[in-house]
Amino acid sequence: MARTAAPAQKAPGRRSQRPDRAIAEVSRASTWARWARLTFLVPAVLYVLFAFLIPIVYNLILSFEQTSPATISSLFAPFAGIANYKNALVQAVTQSAIIRTFTFTFLSLLFQFVIGFGLALLFNLNFPLRRVARSLVIIPWLLPLLITGFIFKFLFQTEAGAVNQILADMHLVSHPIGFLTSPGWAYLTVLIANVWIGIPFFAVLLYSALQDVPLELKEAAMLDGANAWQRLIRVTLPVIRPVIEVVFVLGFVFTIKVFDVVIGLTQGGPANSTEILAPWAYNLTFQQFEYGQGAAINTILLLIALFAAPVYIWLNRESLRRA
């Protein structure tokens, strides 16, 4: 700090010595500086074009084209109207994948919030080693998602799987459950894995929100005779509501595009019971070589994700206002 503050004291002295020249320098610099300022932005603008805008537009074009493995080497293929959307949407897998994407997202967010908020409340209490506990909780969020999928595949194996072993040791089951071989269980397993990944995000954000709840508010409520539950509902929740909104919007965005965990665990099976939109788009494009239909599914996924855009931008209005 001291080092960077030093020029501030020097500046006035120099300017007072030769005022006219200093002014000339500043104005000459400013024309040049305007260009210099723009150059700071050039890499980012080029990158956004390359990695976001062009792929999105290209995906949209592709979804209206008559594609085949033969058209892959040419940039554009013949116009196909809405055939790709039609052909994709008549498939039962697509229909159930759309519905499943929503139920999966809803259930994931529900459990992530309940467990994450519980942990946040827990960490808000004073107990030994809570700092260590808090940082250990972050780990699931940082792991490569595919590896998480693989780890859960290992845990939920039928034979010699840890979860089946624990259930058997507790005498809850007599035969091992086919977690990854029966449709209903497979869906639940993918859900559990995804909830596991998202808990840290909810816990850390909600915890930091709880830390910012003014103590006086809670004390005032306590003096008014509110019990712990009433304080939570009437004081804490309203105060941290903005954070809850952000967490849910971002959680929605993360969950809608879940891909790696499904591939690592079930690859959409058994019997398409865990097929959601992102892995299904991949399947159409890279396994069935239906680029057009894959692009159509991607457009649908994109539209669902963009539902969150206005809300997300509104939640970030403060940062936009400072633009």
Binding site: F52, A309, I313
Partner: peptide
């Protein structure tokens, strides 16, 4: 903010081509 929302799989499919 919008770029942050875009699913990687959408970008990946286009980038492949």
């Amino acid at each position: 903010l919008i770029a942050q929302i875009l699913p990687a799989i959408v970008i990946a499919n286009s980038l492949f081509l």
